[in-house]
Simulated scan of single mutants.
Amino acid sequence: MFSRKLLIFVGLALFIAINFIVITMSSKESLPVNSIERVFISITSPFQLAVTKTIYFTQNVWDTYFIAVLAVKENIELKKQLGKAIEIKNRCEELELENIRLKKFVNFTGLVSDTYVAAQIIARDPSPWFKTIMIDKGAKDDVLKGSPVLVSEGIVGQIIEVAKNYSRVLLITDRNSAVDALVQNSRVRGIVKGNNEDNCSFVYALRKDEVRQGETIISSGLDQVFPKGLKIGRILKVTKVHSQLFQDISIETSVDFDKIEEVLVFKNGKLTKGIR
Rank of each mutant, 00 (worst) to 15 (best):
M1R: 11
F2V: 14
F2Q: 13
S3T: 15
R4D: 13
K5A: 15
I18R: 11
N19P: 01
F20D: 00
F20S: 10
I21T: 09
I23H: 00
E29F: 08
S35A: 08
V39R: 05
I43Y: 02
Q48S: 11
Q48H: 00
T58D: 04
Q59Y: 01
V61D: 01
D63G: 07
Y65M: 07
A68L: 09
A68S: 08
V69C: 02
A71M: 09
V72M: 09
N75V: 01
I76Y: 11
E77N: 14
L78Y: 08
L82N: 08
G83P: 01
K84E: 11
I86A: 02
I88L: 07
I88R: 08
K89N: 07
N90P: 02
R91P: 00
N99H: 10
R101D: 01
R101C: 01
V106N: 03
D114V: 09
T115K: 14
I121S: 12
R124K: 15
P128Q: 12
D136R: 07
K137E: 03
S147I: 06
V149H: 05
V149L: 11
L150W: 02
G154S: 04
N165V: 10
N165E: 11
N165L: 12
Y166F: 08
L171Q: 06
L171C: 07
D174G: 13
R175P: 00
N176T: 07
N176C: 08
V179L: 10
V179W: 01
D180F: 07
A181I: 10
N185S: 15
V188E: 15
V192F: 02
G194H: 10
D198W: 04
C200E: 05
A205F: 01
K208H: 14
Q213A: 07
S219D: 14
L222G: 04
G229L: 06
G233W: 01
R234D: 12
L236R: 15
V238A: 10
V238Y: 09
T239K: 14
K240C: 15
S243M: 11
Q244T: 13
E252C: 06
D256S: 10
I260L: 06
E262I: 10
E262M: 13
V265I: 15
K267P: 00
G274D: 04
R276S: 14
